[in-house]
Structures are given as C-alpha cells and as structure tokens.
C-alpha cells in the first residue's frame, strides 16, 4: 500500500515536521516535551498488537506478548508522567 517513493516522501515530510515543531520550543519545556515525544512513539503498541495478532508459533507469540507489554508500558507510562508534569505549569496571572 505504502511503497517505494511514497514511503520516502512520508519519511522526509514527517522528519521536517518533527524538526519544525520542536525548533522554537522554550527550554522550560524540554523535559516535558522529551517525555511527550517519548509518549508519541508509544504508537509502537499498534505494531506490537498486529505482530501478536499474526503470530503463529509459540516463540513468535511469546516475543510478541513481551512486545505488547513493553509497548503498552511505553504509551501509558509516557502519558502518565507527561500529563503530571504539564499539569503543574501555571502562570502567575492565574489562567492557562
């Protein structure tokens, strides 16, 4: 479905997008943003689920099971800590 140069185009445009989104970020948000991007690659969960859904042998199933556990940890843990950090950012003017 996504092959050859189309894949390459997606890769290039996504790479520039990532760069641009981060380029003007203030230092105060570096840690939450690193944590937030850490959460975003938790999308690996859908890949691990697909791999597990298609696994045939016990070996494949075992590895895929571990993969799904790890991926779910990445996504959920990444969300939990990022949200906790960002929740605390307040302005002295009292509004967000």
């Amino acid at each position: 479905m996504i092959d050859g140069f189309i894949a390459l185009y997606i890769f290039m445009l996504a790479a520039f997008t990532g760069y641009e989104v981060i380029a003007r970020v203030p230092v105060i948000l570096h840690t939450p943003l690193m944590s937030g991007s850490n959460f975003v690659h938790g999308i690996v969960l859908v890949g691990a689920m697909v791999a597990m859904g298609r696994a045939d042998t016990t070996l494949e199933l075992t590895i895929a099971f571990i993969g799904v556990v790890l991926a779910a940890g990445n996504a959920v843990g990444g969300y939990a800590v990022t949200e906790r950090m960002l929740e605390m950012f307040k302005s002295s003017k009292g509004k967000r």
């Binding site: 479905m1 520039f16 990532g18 760069y19």
Partner: peptide, 30 residues
Amino acid sequence: GLAVAFEGFVLNNAAMIIAGTVVGSAGTLL
C-alpha cells in the same frame, strides 16, 4: 522513534511511520 518508524515500514503502518519519524527528528534536535 526511528526504530518505530522503520518497523512501521515493515508492517505497512502509516501511523507508526509518521509518529516514529516525527519523534526521531524532533528527538535528534532536542
């Protein structure tokens, strides 16, 4: 991020490719 994007190519999964690549480049800059 990069690893996720590469596995996205293997699984033909656009969400993984885009999210992984965005994190890969943003993370490199960071």
